[in-house]
Amino acid sequence: MNEITIQNVTKSYGSVLALDDVSLSFSENHIYGLLGRNGAGKSTLLNLITGRQFADSGNIRVDGQYAPENPEAQRKIFMMSEKNLYPTSMKVAEAFRWTSRFYPEFDRDLSASLSSRFGLDPKKKIKSLSTGYASIFKLITAVATRAPYIFLDEPVLGLDANHRDLFYRSLIEQYSENPRTYIISTHLIEEAANVIDQVIIIKNGRLLKDESRDDLLRQGYTISGPAASVDAYAAGRNILGSDTLGGLKTAYLLGECDASALPSGIEISHLDLQHLFIQLTNA
């Protein structure tokens, strides 16, 4: 039973309900995209699993074991958080060395080779790194731990295009060589969209979607064309949302495409995750 299960978890901060009765599970060797707008509750969920904060109610298990404050369960997880929890004077190389003592599977060769690929200087103090390099440092640490469950909270924050590219390549490479569960929490979906295979969408602390990326994308389609024809076709169907650009209208629809009813002059295409996400989480 290798999975993380979350049952009826609720968490509030004062009067703000951050997570509202969320139940889901993360199963072995998938790359999850944990998607949601800022403040939707993504980080809260990860913080509860790693025991950094405590849920008001509900049950969180890692491989069948109750997770919070359980050393055995926690050693299976490494979470790269957006915030820096490293001591002021600690250097990159020191952090790698200490992490390898807490995560015995830590791959020192990998951390060294990734550091040189990204141009991360191990002699630098962590606190002196730029936002981008701080993210790179944390990413390298996370991947090198070889923990069975690796959480990446906003992994590409501050990374330039080249480094984002390199990051996703390295991630796929590592995942292919050593399959494990990655949970990538982000609101920057476009680049992650093809990498993840499972999608979890959280909106205002509630679970909105939890399914494979392919299944999710198969549920809908996009049509675009003259506004009148699009409206005529879309009437009575399940519309997620739409964009208008002058007389051109694009509608995002759920369900099967009914090609016979489709007026001419209308183009159909697949939903892409980015658009689907925006439509699902709007307002």
Partner: peptide
């Protein structure tokens, strides 16, 4: 290989 394709196209190896 699957891995080579996945890495070069930045897609999930399963895909």
């Amino acid at each position: 290989s699957t891995t080579e394709i996945a890495v070069s196209d930045k897609i999930n190896p399963a895909t």
